[in-house]
Design a protein around this nucleic acid. Structure first.
Length: 261
DNA sequence: ATGGTCGAGGTTCGA
């Protein structure tokens, strides 16, 4: 089972690039972030006609997450538990049924800028809620993949120019500590363990501004965290970097893991 | 050191 995450930065603007990537990526399931669409505005038929099961959790204008799957999806739930007043569409869970059942949590973690301010407070509170949910998912003792745009640069080596990010919500010590608190519950960072001692990179996001892609001025903020039962099934993982060089690209590229499931 | 791009929705905000 090949599982991917892709922040597409607008489904209407990215329908062609996403469709082309899906045709060549050989993925079974992909979680999407920043669909920037209400559920009724998502081109559901376009993807269902191509053989994808579609589950969305959208809102008007901003945010929004979705799952496309060639395999059956069960027990879909929308929204991150822990705050009934939170109306931002940033989280969706589903169980994918292959040879084994795999629980997926697709997430779009708040950006948090500017700092300080209510947006950063919301980011840290959201991460605390995610930590609680992550502990519940680990307690299932089943293969779980928690993946998406975490909007956190874990370490200095995850940025081409870390000095640019020192005052940014994506790299502040509190943000990184909150991510570590989740990881240290027992999650495996699938992309990092490909090359544990890398001194720089790999990256998953390059800003549209100032020629960041051409300078390879990237950061790693899209992550795949695997429960121990999922990590035991991991056979391959990767980043589809070439997607950033295509026509009308997103500013993020897909990240993926293949499980023997 | 400097300059500066997208998307969505509606003339501005979020990233």
């Amino acid at each position: 089972m090949k599982i991917a995450s892709f922040n597409i930065n607008g489904i209407k603007a990215r329908i062609e690039a996403l469709t082309n990537w899906l045709a060549g990526a050989d993925v079974d399931v992909v979680v999407l972030q920043e669909i920037k669409s209400v559920d009724e505005g998502f081109p559901r038929e376009h993807f269902s006609d191509l053989g994808w099961n579609v589950e969305t959790h959208g809102q008007k204008g901003f945010n929004g997450v979705a799952i496309l799957s060639r395999l059956p999806l069960e027990d879909v739930s929308r929204g991150l538990p822990g705050d009934d007043s939170d109306e931002q569409a940033r989280y969706i869970e589903a169980t994918v049924v292959g040879d084994q059942a795999v629980r997926l949590a697709g997430l779009y973690l708040p950006n948090g800028n500017p700092v300080p301010g209510p947006k950063y407070d919301y980011k840290l509170a959201w991460m605390e809620r995610l930590r609680h949910r992550a502990a519940e998912l680990l307690a299932l003792e089943m293969p779980v993949v928690m993946l998406g745009d975490y909007n956190v640069i874990p370490e200095a080596r995850d940025a081409a120019k870390p000095e640019k990010w020192v005052d940014d919500a994506l790299f502040l010590p509190q943000s990184r500590a909150a991510l570590r608190a989740i990881q240290w519950q027992g999650w495996t960072d699938a992309i990092r363990i490909r090359d544990p001692w890398a001194q720089r990179g790999p990256f998953t996001f390059w800003d549209y501004q100032a020629g960041a892609w051409n300078r390879d001025d990237g950061i790693r903020i899209d992550h795949l965290l695997l429960s121990p039962q999922a990590a035991d099934l991991m056979v391959e993982t990767g980043i589809d970097r070439e997607a950033r060089a295509g026509e009308k690209p997103s500013d993020h590229v897909p990240v993926w893991v293949r499980l023997a499931a």
